[in-house]
Simulated scan of single mutants.
Amino acid sequence: MYIGHYAAAAVLVTLVPASPVTPIAIGVAWPDLVWPVLVLMGRERVTVGRSDPLQRSIRFDSYPFSHSLVLGNLFTLVPAAIVALLYDSILLGLLFWVAAISHWILDLVVHMHDLPILGFGGNDRKLGFGLWQYPKTAFATEYIFFAIVVLLTAQPTAYVGVLGGGLFLHFLNANSFFGFSRHNPFSTPTRLALITFVGYIGAIAWFTLAWQ
């Protein structure tokens, strides 16, 4: 899931309208900001199906630090504490942490039974409802979910920027759902990690600017 994570950001900034947008925009993306760094460091592993561009062909072999429900979100308390100190707001630190937790919950809908619960132990259970198995349905469902939440939470003056920008970013990821190319253009872990990181930096900037 990509743009769908910003539905959670929309809810959180609406619930606490006085809070700055940027930390929450970073929070919902946090696991996918940490993940590329850990992949590049060799601490987490992913296998990319080179002959298949679809998202379902990517196998997340190991990502306990960035994408486990327990260990990953315990580590996220560190940046949450930093946010609380920087903004002098325990509430904002808590919102950052909740935003990061929402990432795992939403990923659960689309991932292919690979999200670890604990993040440690040899018999850790993994979950995932596997919506990516139905790529066209997953593509439509993610944006519809995002759009409905935005229409319920955003000010009408922000509709064009949030919905339009979100649609643009969503279509940038369309090859992963429709397979326009014969091969995966991000055919190595390094390439996938880098494009993921860049994609989320762009999403953070878009949401922060568009929500104002």
Rank of each mutant, 00 (worst) to 15 (best):
F186R: 09
F60A: 12
P185C: 12
I148Y: 01
N175S: 09
L169A: 06
I144D: 05
G179T: 14
L74P: 05
G202R: 11
G72M: 13
A147L: 14
T188N: 01
D32V: 14
F197H: 07
Y159Q: 08
E44Y: 01
P53R: 03
A18P: 00
A8C: 08
R182M: 08
V162E: 01
A158D: 04
S19R: 09
F207M: 10
L167G: 12
L172Y: 00
H67T: 15
F186I: 09
T14S: 10
H111Q: 15
F120G: 10
S176G: 06
P20N: 10
S176L: 14
I26E: 00
G199T: 13
R125M: 11
V34I: 15
A7P: 07
Y2W: 12
F207N: 04
V37Q: 00
F178Q: 07
S51A: 13
G179W: 02
L152C: 13
L15T: 03
G165T: 13
R125D: 02
G72V: 13
R182S: 15
V13Q: 01
L167P: 03
T14D: 03
R125F: 10
I90F: 15
A7D: 11
L127M: 15
Y159G: 08
H103R: 06
L94N: 04
P156T: 06
V150P: 00
L127E: 04
L106C: 04
S62A: 14
H103L: 06
Y87A: 13
I3Y: 00
A84V: 06
W206Y: 03
Y63S: 13
F139G: 05
P156Y: 02
I82V: 15
A193W: 02
G119V: 08
A138E: 07
G93N: 12
F120Y: 14
Y6K: 09
L209I: 12
G166S: 10
V83C: 08
W132K: 05
T14K: 14
F75A: 10
V39Q: 04
D61I: 12
A193E: 00
A193P: 00
N175A: 11
V160D: 06
V98N: 09
L192I: 12
T22K: 07
V11D: 02
A29P: 02
L71H: 03
D61Q: 14
L151S: 05
V21P: 01
A8I: 08
R45E: 14
V78L: 15
K136E: 09
T157P: 01
Y63K: 11
W132A: 08
T153K: 02
V46A: 00
E142V: 14
V13S: 01
D114E: 14
A84Q: 05
T137K: 04
L85R: 12
M1Y: 09
A84Y: 06
A210G: 01
L106T: 10
I195A: 02
G4W: 05
K136D: 05
T22N: 03
V37N: 00
W211N: 02
L54S: 07
P53T: 11
T157I: 09
L192Q: 11
F139H: 05
F177L: 08
F197W: 13
V83S: 02
P156L: 00
V110L: 04
Y87H: 13
G164E: 10
L167N: 03
H67A: 15
D52E: 10
V48W: 01
N123P: 07
L209N: 00
A29L: 08
S68Y: 01
V28R: 03
G42N: 10
V70S: 07
I82G: 05
V98Q: 04
V46K: 00
S187K: 02
G122E: 08
Y6M: 09
